[in-house]
Amino acid sequence: MVKDITFGQYYPSKSALHNMDARMKLVLTFAMIVCIFLCHNFFSLGVMALFTVIAVIFSRVPVKMLLKSIKPVLVILIFTAVLNIFYTKGGETYFTLFNKISITEKGVNTAVFTMIRIVVLVVLSSLLTYTTTPTMLTDALERLLSPLKVFHIKVHTLAMMMTLALRFIPTLIEEIDRIMNAQKARGADLETGGLIKRAKALIPIFIPLMVSSFRRAYELAFAMTCRCYTGGDGRTRMKQMKLGYRDFIALLICLISLAGIIVLNRFFIKII
């Protein structure tokens, strides 16, 4: 039921990727995603694919888990492939139907290219969430955005809000489950009826949920105040983030990949 929704799909392990500094991981993932869009032919895209495969091996995340993360985008994947095959024209024509629908070399190339691109994109970004806990991620984000303090943006407060929001997702799911059961026991019908009727049926669930969320928020704020929490100013960290040799090796690999992509882009014809 509702409990089956997984969030922050962290996969606990002690791989090289898990042990990397979350800041470096975040920056590099972002950079490599940009790199995917720099690739203009299959050779440079091949470098990206190779990079992804190496990253997967180092993460020790089972391939099954990664396939699970591709599943939701499968529809988009097929949709873009089909569109590209039929709507991109150029090069040799392989197949024509009624003089209208035709499949060309360029169409097939583009379709395959975009598909690989999307898969690499999804795998890379899910690797980040598989190997980094949500708390580590928000922490890293806080550190990376800390220069924004110059513009009087409360980066710490925003990060804390994000951490708390993530922390309360499972709690709220449990709460919804409980309230749903209580209302079902009073004969609430959540399964049948049209759209409006179903939306109305949610009122008995969302009002109690709101009420308890506000109560929780007050209690939490109170508990934090009691422990002298006053926001980010002067606050030190228990877990200091430190760049290690792993992070520099990862950076080096990424730079080599980038160089490879640029070189291969130059020496082979652009197909996209």
Binding site: I179, A182, Q183, K184, P204, P208, S212
Partner: peptide, 17 residues
Amino acid sequence: ARFKVGLCFQYPEAQLF
């Protein structure tokens, strides 16, 4: 059966809306 067996859960005040 839902109406024949009235179930009142723990902390039922959470159902008030």
